[in-house]
Design a protein around this nucleic acid. Sequence first.
DNA 1: CGACACCCCCTACCTTAGTCGAATATCCAT
DNA 2: ATGGATATTCGACTAAGGTAGGGGGTGTCG
Lengths: 213, 213
Amino acid sequence: MADIERFLVADDHPMVRDALASALGQAFTGAQFSMAGSLDQAKAALEREPETDAVLLDLDMPGMDGLTGLARLRAEHPTVPIVVVSAAREASVMRRAYEFGASAYIDKSAPLDEIAAIVRAVLDGEIFAPPEASTGETFAQRAAQLTPQQWRVLALMVQGDQNKQIAHKLGVGEATVKAHVTVILRKLGVRSRTQAVIEARGLALPATETIRG
Amino acid sequence: MADIERFLVADDHPMVRDALASALGQAFTGAQFSMAGSLDQAKAALEREPETDAVLLDLDMPGMDGLTGLARLRAEHPTVPIVVVSAAREASVMRRAYEFGASAYIDKSAPLDEIAAIVRAVLDGEIFAPPEASTGETFAQRAAQLTPQQWRVLALMVQGDQNKQIAHKLGVGEATVKAHVTVILRKLGVRSRTQAVIEARGLALPATETIRG
DNA sequence: CGACACCCCCTACCTTAGTCGAATATCCAT
DNA sequence: ATGGATATTCGACTAAGGTAGGGGGTGTCG
């Protein structure tokens, strides 16, 4: 990691982008910023600059389609830490964001210095485990063992793609994808692709959504 | 349908059970009631009395595991109307409840006479389409074409069971299950079991959960 | 009754999913 | 550099998923 940080700020609202960038600019003197207003722009920016130190990602952005966009972004750039910045405070969304590999989840209304502090911690390699999401957490633990390529495969599995399509999208052979799937199933502790998809979407435990009686 | 209604009230809180039963007792003079405090008890009650006219089902009950319990109950007794009584007001939970075949969704804080009115409508064969759940509704329409047995198969597919296990649980041959699966995939407009499971859990559209920016 | 819809069962066949063993490359520690 | 652990890749094989088509049973409705 170089001396100068490089960030990508992805939000469809220019005002929010500037606010985030200036906050980080104060905390990280001399940092460089890229801006994106849609998922496609964010992808292109990461393509141009793979050495980005962190992405601040808004979930409510054109092309994101909720958490699906996060999954896609991580599928293509598994090594870049992503800090989700969202207005949705739902615990379920938060939890799933972490399951899809987010390094932190920040509320949009949080003070800017707090945001900077969290980003700094992420750059130090920390991952902000969700306090209220630690009810089950079995999946997150198992999923942490996945390699970057396996993450990509899983992300596509979760979208309903089959091995042949995944192979094409990743530019490898179908046999290779199958091998990855086998490892993924073992690491996730399930016995079929369908179960893996169920697990990966945090669906197995709607408990946190209904416990409120 | 006989002159005397028979209800099953399933809630782990005795006070709630009594309140619901007395409310229905006033609206349906001479009605008969069974009580259950867990999913297993509810199952047993339906086993004893398959001619039950309607089930009032609480989602926060031992063994329910959220909506999974609803799916299981409907899988075993597809013809019995189920009125979900829950404290969770989340639109997503509501929507999924309908997708799993609930005939109505009542908030626990609703006035008792309103509850009785809704139950009466359900007995008349009506299904309370969710007002705020009609954003996409494509799945509900397609799923409405499923026969009872196909519902059972789908419910087990959604739990991650494979054809062999489904065949065993339903007491039929694996070839039969495959035939059902083929029809289900066609009716749902998908091309693989995994996609069907994704659809069936309302996961394909996290939009309603994140749109709030 | 005949037409229809649902349910169950089966054979045969093809496609997809998943396992196993093995080759290559990288990184890291000794 | 040598060894070892891990990632990535692939081909061959076995299991499961899915399709097409046929047969038989039930109940309902006109």
